[in-house]
Simulated scan of single mutants.
Amino acid sequence: MIITLGGLAGTGTTTTAELLSEKLDIPYISAGYVFRQMASERGMSVLEFSEFAEGNDDIDKEIDKRQAELAKSSDNLIVEGRLSAYFVEADLKLWLVTPFDVRSQRIAERESKSVDVASEEIIVREESEALRYMDIHNIDIKNMDIYDLIINTGTFNPEEVSEIILTTLKVI
């Protein structure tokens, strides 16, 4: 079974992927991890790398390529990433949403920064990413038509989110 899991920063995609991986006993890969790894390799922050990637289409293409290749060679895999659903043939395509203030708080805690700084960085990063996605792939990140299930992780805790997904898997 191949599952894609997407969502904007702070929606809980990594937490959800980890829980699903554990409950289903299948591995997961993360586009965010690949992105952060590539930023680190270049000695940049995620924000700096996001701005750098805005002028370098090869960054996004490389992330997409790595994910698609791994999914093709796997029988069971959870692929976590904002654009994963567009590039990975999947049995279930999920998108997580969360109110902006909740996402800002989560990121501030995770990255040990103020909520104001986290909020400003989210806005800059998401504007940059939306431009890249449209320019490179002609994908409108706000279009939810490709997803089978959209879950508000501001309403449900991680355990409840994983249970919603597991229940959904029983009917597909």
Rank of each mutant, 00 (worst) to 15 (best):
87 F>R: 02
87 F>A: 02
53 A>Q: 07
37 Q>H: 14
40 S>K: 13
77 L>P: 00
58 D>T: 12
29 I>Q: 00
66 R>F: 12
75 D>Y: 10
61 K>R: 11
15 T>V: 09
55 G>I: 01
63 I>V: 10
17 A>T: 00
37 Q>W: 13
33 Y>D: 15
23 K>D: 08
86 Y>H: 12
33 Y>S: 15
21 S>Q: 03
51 E>A: 10
31 A>D: 07
51 E>L: 13
70 L>R: 10
42 R>H: 15
72 K>V: 08
31 A>K: 11
55 G>F: 11
22 E>I: 10
22 E>H: 13
76 N>C: 06
71 A>V: 02
48 E>V: 06
51 E>T: 13
77 L>G: 00
15 T>D: 02
67 Q>E: 11
84 S>M: 05
89 E>C: 02
50 S>D: 13
63 I>L: 03
52 F>C: 03
32 G>E: 05
82 R>F: 05
36 R>P: 10
74 S>G: 04
20 L>Y: 03
80 E>H: 06
15 T>K: 04
62 E>R: 12
26 I>F: 07
31 A>R: 05
50 S>C: 13
75 D>Q: 10
37 Q>G: 14
77 L>K: 00
91 D>Q: 12
86 Y>Q: 04
92 L>Q: 05
35 F>M: 11
84 S>P: 10
10 G>C: 09
64 D>R: 00
77 L>E: 01
74 S>D: 06
71 A>L: 03
80 E>A: 07
33 Y>W: 15
68 A>C: 09
57 D>M: 01
88 V>Y: 02
52 F>K: 04
80 E>M: 02
88 V>A: 06
38 M>S: 10
65 K>P: 00
68 A>V: 07
31 A>F: 10
55 G>Y: 08
27 P>I: 01
58 D>L: 11
69 E>Y: 02
15 T>I: 04
21 S>F: 01
82 R>K: 12
